[in-house]
Design a protein around this nucleic acid. Structure first.
Lengths: 345, 345
DNA sequence: AGGATCGTGGGTAACGTTGCCCAAATGTTT
DNA sequence: AAACATTTGGGCAACGTTACCCACGATCCT
């Protein structure tokens, strides 16, 4: 077995010789294709087991499938994404597909490079989580490889989408805070540089949903948005700006939990208490929002469900590339915790 | 450009025809191999640019390299691993290599399957973070593909390792707590089922380091270990057990921050205060330990540095597979925060 | 009984790239 | 001027797998 280190890998030819059949026959058995008798299948399977054969993904890729699906995640440090990923892998557990993650895609250019590299590796399908590329580029990519886009409110002609109803999510937060008696409710947003994406990005829609909800409550005059980033650092900077206002907001709605955490840092640093001096709400309901020391009010968008749906759609599209594109839209729910309460003043 | 959807991908043959040279010539230019004149290089590069050619990783894989490196992470929800990963990608930023992550490897069997799939995809090298496979299996894998193992205290004959000095790390925590006046210091550990790994796994070494340090302080009688898991759930269960002791410990040293978070949950649930009633320390110094609402005393093991070293070693091994194996051992430091203080009683 | 149909298995040619070899042209030495 | 080294470029055969075809024997229908 483990003799003399390096040995040429066992190939389909070896299996064929060992089972005394043709390579074609082995290939057919491997793919459960038509034209194999039970007896032959048995022999081939035995030979495979005895030799410890494993198909070369490289060779397969050159001919057709790779049985590999790629998932692009924009920021692996954001604890929301592991949840989505868990949904994806769970959904694919009993398939032949292997999921590979392409990390670190900050910005449109890096993202394009990452997507290219997944295409170069001829993955059978890709899931793009919260991509920042213009829609035309997404369409282009989807023309090359089956694609599911998570978190973009766009109707792709050839790609499927899974997204949360961010307008409703933002409204949930504002309604909740207004219900508690807040009026000066500020929002920490994530800006969008690419003009063609503005209406599609969740961050922009959350901001717009916030505006709408504020107006609906007759609080148009209180609308106050700081645009930083959906990162811990961004939340920190955003909160610092808000705390420096002549009249401080009584509540902060951060567009993402990770930004809310930064905001909580800034508030603690300023010597203020939550929710005594200021209420804070986030978005994503990440595991850390549920954490006892944090107990952050947040919007739950069922990350695992999103991931599972994305995987399901991707398999469907791989099965039929001409399939009509579908858009799954999930409804968020509000999870009320300890960081929001009635304003003191 | 974006005409009529699907088109056959541009290959090296198309480039060769367009540049009026042979495919061999194009291949040489692509790999900056010997035997190309500046004039030819220029022409080929121009043709590549005009046609938008990208090499097929699949075809390359069949011949040799894939320019792909695989990283296996055991638990993507643990915020320590993104840091290691950041170190890896940063180190590889200016190389031709693409990093792909293989997620979700709970348990030895799933891990083996994941590693196999990376080998099947003929990755040029792999980094295994905190693998649980027996050493013999790691050696076997390393015989097939260049491998760097992170977090195992094993001297591989053909794989390199990067690890933190976990004995020292555990001692830092115990020394700190003893210095504050604690005596009843308990430890939450992660068990090891595979006997051949017991001496190599960081979790076991942290536990042993804890024991040694306790004995050194004359506290052998106070040694108290609960063995659950390095997860939030594991920390929670571990702390529940400890809080049910007839005589409660005054301090808990969790072997990982993620477990410490679970412990904090359990302590909060029991209506106890930290550090008033009980001190808590973790390990890894994840971003969430630094978070204001948590402010967890923790051992910093420089995740990014670990990742960068692993990537560096991997490149070196890919360059020379016969290279002597090297072991990098990093020294941890203690970051003292608000969850540890002198015991009240 | 003769022809059509079916089930079973194999032969072959790609897929796109690169390593090895060789040929021609050019430059350098005796 | 002849022999030799060097540069520059190309031909060819793999790498391991699968899609497409075809051949053979057995079974079925009229």
């Amino acid at each position: 077995m483990t003799r003399s280190a390096q040995r040429r890998r066992v190939t389909i030819v070896d299996v064929a010789r060992h089972a005394q059949v043709s390579t074609t026959a082995v290939s057919k058995v491997l793919r459960n294709a038509y034209g194999t008798s039970p007896a032959m299948r048995e022999r081939v399977h035995q030979a495979i087991a005895e030799l410890g054969y494993r198909p070369s993904a490289a060779a397969r890729a050159l001919r057709g499938q790779t049985y590999t699906l790629g998932v692009m995640v924009p920021d692996i440090a954001n604890p929301f994404f592991p949840e989505v990923l868990a949904g994806v892998t769970e959904q694919l557990r009993d398939t032949d597909y292997q999921v590979l993650l392409a990390p670190g895609c900050a910005g449109e250019q890096a993202e394009a490079k990452t997507i290219e590299s997944m295409i170069d590796r001829s993955m059978d399908g890709i899931i793009l989580i919260a991509p920042v590329s213009p829609r035309a580029h997404l369409e282009h990519v989807a023309g090359i490889v089956p694609t599911v886009v998570v978190g973009r409110h766009a109707r792709g002609t050839i790609f499927d989408t899974v997204a949360d109803d961010d307008t409703a999510g933002a409204a949930l937060v504002v309604d909740h805070l207004v219900g508690l008696g807040h009026r000066r409710i500020a929002h920490i947003a994530h800006p969008e540089t690419e003009p063609s994406c503005i209406e599609e990005m969740p961050n922009m829609i959350r901001a717009e949903g916030y505006r709408q909800a504020m107006r609906r409550h007759g609080l148009a005059g209180e609308i106050d948005i700081v645009s930083t980033r959906y990162t811990r650092e961004g939340g920190y900077r955003g909160a610092r700006q808000l705390l420096a206002r002549p009249v401080r907001p009584t509540a902060v709605f951060a567009g993402a939990d990770i930004a809310a955490m930064g905001a909580l840092d800034a508030i603690a640093e300023a010597g203020l208490s939550v929710p005594g001096d200021i209420s804070v709400a986030g978005y994503d309901n990440t595991p850390f929002a549920a954490f006892s020391q944090v107990s952050l009010t947040s919007v739950d968008q069922a990350g695992a469900q999103i991931g599972a749906d994305a995987a399901r759609l991707l398999l469907a599209r791989i099965g039929d590339r001409a399939r009509r594109s579908s858009q799954v839209k999930l409804s968020p729910t509000l999870v009320t915790r300890a960081t929001t309460a009635a304003p003191s003043s």
